[in-house]
Amino acid sequence: MKYSYILFLFISLPIYCQNTIQLEEGLKSPKASLEDVSWIAGHWQGEAFGGITEEIWSPPLGNSMMFVFKLLVNGKVQFYEIGHIQEQEETLLLQLKHFSGNLKGWETKDETIDFKLVKIEENKVYFEGFTMEKVTTNEINIYVLIEHEDGTKKEEKFNYKKL
């Protein structure tokens, strides 16, 4: 019985995390530039968490692409994110910070949530636990591995259309 439960976990885990991956221990992020991910730039809107999600990504400029994210539920802002993808040491790093609807920060003053680059494909970029996929020039998917308060992790999909 114990072994069948463990087998179930190994078989079912990839089903729930099909689009997010981690950098293998001891490996460095691959070489990359912002031009490799410039297709992310734009004003995007979708639905998730029972509300409307919005992301605005700037084109590459000054070794970074900045973004803002907003979640609205029942017409009220639940939270914001602000962040960027930066070119650092010939690779890319995605960093972000969270803010409640009244702009009170979730992370400490100097703390950021960092996602190292794992790999890039023609229409997909994989950061650790955060994947962006170009479906068409007017549609993208973002997959985020979210850890919940009880310690469980679940991959969430955000589908966006360009405004």
Rank of each mutant, 00 (worst) to 15 (best):
D36V: 02
I15L: 15
Y16M: 06
P30A: 00
G62C: 01
G42M: 01
F69E: 04
L94E: 09
E139R: 12
F127P: 03
E87Q: 15
W44M: 11
V144T: 06
L27P: 09
N19D: 11
T152N: 13
E155D: 02
L94H: 14
F158T: 00
K161N: 07
T131M: 09
S29K: 05
V135R: 08
E24S: 11
G101A: 07
L71G: 02
Y5V: 09
S33M: 05
Y80N: 11
T108F: 13
I82W: 06
G105M: 13
K153I: 11
N159K: 14
Y160V: 08
F8Y: 15
H84N: 11
I11A: 15
F99E: 11
V37S: 07
G46T: 05
M66W: 02
I120A: 03
L145Q: 09
G42S: 01
S29D: 13
Y5A: 14
A48S: 13
I11K: 01
E122F: 08
V68S: 13
F115V: 03
S38Y: 05
G42I: 04
L93I: 15
I11W: 03
S4W: 01
T53H: 03
K76H: 13
H98N: 13
L117R: 11
L117V: 03
D110E: 15
V135W: 01
K124G: 07
T91D: 05
L72P: 01
D110T: 14
E90Q: 11
V37F: 01
Q45C: 02
G151M: 00
L93Q: 12
K104G: 06
G129M: 10
E139W: 10
F158R: 08
E24H: 12
K97S: 10
E24P: 12
K97W: 04
K76A: 12
F99L: 13
L9P: 01
K154T: 09
L72N: 06
L145N: 15
E35I: 07
H84R: 14
V118M: 10
E55I: 08
K97M: 15
K153E: 14
K134E: 05
G101V: 10
P30T: 06
L34Q: 04
N74T: 03
E90V: 00
Q86E: 14
L7V: 02
K97G: 11
V37I: 08
F79T: 00
K70S: 13
Q88D: 08
K116I: 07
K31F: 07
G129A: 00
K31T: 02
N159E: 08
I146S: 13
Y5C: 05
S33N: 14
G75V: 00
G51V: 04
N74Y: 06
S4I: 15
T53F: 00
G62E: 01
L7K: 01
K124S: 06
P14H: 08
K153C: 11
Q18N: 14
E133D: 10
I56W: 02
Q78G: 05
G51D: 03
Y126G: 08
Y16K: 09
V118S: 12
I6R: 01
L34G: 08
S38T: 07
I21M: 08
Y160H: 08
G151P: 10
A32M: 09
S12K: 00
L163Y: 13
T53L: 05
